[in-house]
């Protein structure tokens, strides 16, 4: 066989091979999985990643089904005034429950751990704790915030903010520093969070890094969990 043809065939095969290698490297990098020395650890890691992927796929399917459902509801509601009223009620309830993505004016507070400083005696004060986040969320609610999220995790009426070692758990999901707390509401009222002597100012004095920003176009994602009421029943 001609040498030229051989070289070209080998080049094409190498082309395919390098595409495969690049895809594989990208995939592995994207999942942040490094090969660890222990086989067991590797297996557990890959299992977690597979489960996560499964969850994401299922969630995307669920979202698609929900969109379809909404379309169907709208179709039916457009022909019947009584149903239209119910439809608007459902929409309002979903908005209140935090089941929809919302956008509007508001503020964004970023809390991050302070840098180690020998002058500060109590290093405990430098760290952003779950209680600090809770205090900020409470103040936001006090100032009339209509929708709040912590690092893209929506705060609903069932949300718990708890401490879990060096991270914070919101809605059962891990949240780490820097913590971005976003609130949508009346900006002038929400701005009071930044007043002298406020919680945020105390954090600043303690050595934490606090960033306060007003924003006219914020977006807060919807709650991704499931709301279940098993025990509470309406009183007749």
């Amino acid at each position: 066989m001609d040498k030229k043809v051989e070289a070209i065939i080998l080049a094409i095969m190498c082309f395919i091979l390098t595409i495969g290698i690049c895809i594989q490297i990208n995939t592995v990098n994207n999942n942040g999985s490094t090969v660890s020395g222990s086989q067991q650890e590797n297996n557990l890691k890959s299992q977690v990643l597979k489960m996560k992927e499964k969850y994401e796929n299922q969630y995307a399917e669920l979202e698609r089904a929900e969109r379809e459902l909404e379309k169907e509801r709208e179709n039916i509601a457009s022909s019947n005034t009584e149903l239209a009223e119910l439809e608007s009620k459902i929409k309002k309830a979903n908005l209140l429950l935090g089941n929809t993505n919302v956008t509007g004016t508001g503020i964004k507070v970023t809390l991050s751990d302070g840098k180690a400083d020998p002058k500060i005696l109590d290093a405990e004060n430098l760290i952003v704790h779950a209680e600090n986040v809770l205090a900020v969320v409470n103040e936001m609610k006090n100032a009339g915030a209509e929708a709040i999220s912590i690092n893209e995790e929506r705060v609903t009426n069932t949300t718990a903010i708890s401490c879990d070692g060096n991270i914070i758990i919101v809605n059962g999901k891990k949240v780490g520093s820097p913590i971005q707390i976003t609130a949508i509401g009346f900006v002038e009222l929400l701005s009071n969070l930044n007043r002298p002597g406020s919680t945020l100012e105390t954090f600043k004095n303690n050595g934490k890094i606090v960033d306060f920003k007003k924003n006219s176009n914020l977006e807060i994602p919807k709650y991704t969990g499931v709301l279940n009421f098993k025990y509470a029943k309406t009183v007749k």
Partner: peptide, 13 residues
């Protein structure tokens, strides 16, 4: 030829 194939493959990949 192999080198060219590899470089093209990397760019596409």
């Amino acid at each position: 030829a192999i080198l060219i194939g590899c470089i093209l493959g990397a760019i596409v990949g």
